[in-house]
Amino acid sequence: MSLRSSAPRVAALLLLVAFVTAPQLFSFAFEPLTANNAPAIYNQGSLLSLTLSHLRIVFLATLASTMLALALGIFVTRPSGHEFLPLSRSLVNIGQTFPPIAVLAIAVPLVGFGEKPTFIALFLYGLLPIFENTLSGLTGVSPQALDAAKGMGMSPRQRLFQVELPLALPVILAGIRLSVIISLGTATIGSTVAAKGLGEVIIAGLQSNNVAFVLQGGLVVALLAVLIHDGLGIAERVAARRSGRPLDEAR
């Protein structure tokens, strides 16, 4: 990672932190967008706590989806779960045609408003990319490496933990990254069902016709997403290097 390429990242991160901790410092930039003396900076709650609860729900949901998706992905690639492999592939394919907002909307009448439907939507929708990538990671392990592992007397468990999972890791991480990014967006929409998150700022702006709110909410979410995407990308590249692949091979 050269200094030149990481400089914009660091700058963006500093800007984001500065904005959510002391938004008033930036009011000069948003004032021109307001009308009728409306506030330039979101004033119905702390941006910092909104950001933190936004991140919290995304993190928890991703953690839960990762665990389940990994377990399922491992199961259907074992001989005992092989029967379910073709179907699970089709299901992932079909599942991804459901827009996340539909999942969110359908969850509301079932569990009520608040964090719960958002968590359910994030969890369910987050499963798909991770499961899909776990599958392609595990089935993409070189058959020779597996044959060699078996031939050297590794037990199925040893093969899974010492060969298959480490080799599939970069692909699995790519799935987690995708899942996190989708969840960040869905969590924003979650504010329409009263989950605490950065979507509140945008929606408050839309409701009060305050473009300044809409813009700052949008910018914070966007910066957050880009930075997290980027950070997870670095983790992925490290994993790819650890798994002994040249950088460009692991996407």
């Binding site: 967006g185 929409i189 979507g199 945008i202 473009v211 949008g218 910018l219 979410v221 966007a222 997403a225």
Partner: peptide, 14 residues
């Protein structure tokens, strides 16, 4: 592509 949809809508509104 990374920017969530509602955020991008918001950014474009201004």
């Amino acid at each position: 592509q990374t920017v969530p949809s509602i955020a991008l809508f918001g950014i474009l509104i201004a």
